[in-house]
């Protein structure tokens, strides 16, 4: 099943193995602008692997992954300018404060004069304003996760790739995460590829267009109930 617009991200018969251990086989999936696909499945089923294949962090053993019609390359500046990720819990500079980290990313993406406002908004949205001028070492694990989410959202992007973003967030942040993602999808036309264990997040109104369920390396794609 494809979305209404030309696909932004295409996985075509993608398979991946870690050494002799197959994880995914023959996965095909398209993601169009403004679409959200949620990956569901037990631990070890291949959700994170699929996300890393989609962003080019891993190369598929078989098949191909295309972003905007070209093979995805995580080291290509054009790809990095368009895909935002929150996949790695340690992907931050230990010697920059939260604010500096976000400003670096915002300025690098050409926000210019608007960078400061964008960073202030993200700090407020993720309840990091009072921790904005501390180093990451002084943050709790939940605040670190919030910082990584803010870093992904502070910059412009066409595709947002998130791996269990609800992990380590407190109940209030979890509860609002789905609504924030749905709002971004609606207003900015962002495509979202999201892996989660949180049923409430997957069921957030206005967020998921399709659900991908994993079964022994293969996937089943179905529209979310009610769509």
């Amino acid at each position: 099943m494809t979305g209404p617009e030309p696909a932004l991200l295409t996985l075509r018969e993608v398979g991946h193995a870690y050494g002799e251990t197959p994880v995914l086989h023959s996965v095909s999936l398209d993601l169009s602008p403004g679409e959200c696909v949620v990956l569901l499945g037990p631990n070890g089923c291949g959700k994170s692997t699929l996300l890393r294949l989609a962003t080019g962090q891993l190369r598929p053993t078989t098949g191909e992954v295309l972003f905007a019609g070209r093979p995805v390359d995580e080291n290509d500046p054009g790809t990095r300018a368009r895909i935002a990720t929150a996949l790695d819990p340690t992907a931050y500079y230990p010697d920059l404060t939260v604010r500096e980290h976000l400003m670096l990313i915002a300025l690098a993406h050409g926000l210019g004069e608007a960078a400061e406002r964008a960073v202030t908004d993200q700090l407020a949205e993720h309840r990091l304003t009072e921790r904005a001028d501390v180093l990451p070492r002084a943050l709790s694990s939940g605040q670190t996760q919030a910082m990584l989410l803010a870093a992904a959202l502070v910059r412009p992007h066409d595709l947002l790739v998130l791996d269990e973003p609800e992990q380590r967030l407190d109940a209030r942040a979890r509860a609002s995460l789905g609504a924030r993602l749905a709002r971004r999808k609606r207003t900015a036309g962002t495509a979202i590829l999201l892996a989660t264990h949180d049923a409430a997040l997957a069921a957030e109104p206005g967020l998921a267009d399709r659900l991908v369920e994993f079964d022994d390396g293969a996937v089943t794609v179905r529209p979310r109930a009610g769509r």
Binding site: R80, A91, A108, R155
Partner: peptide, 10 residues
């Protein structure tokens, strides 16, 4: 991965 959000080739 620290520079993963920056739009520069490594």
């Amino acid at each position: 991965r620290r520079a993963g959000q920056l739009p520069y080739a490594p």
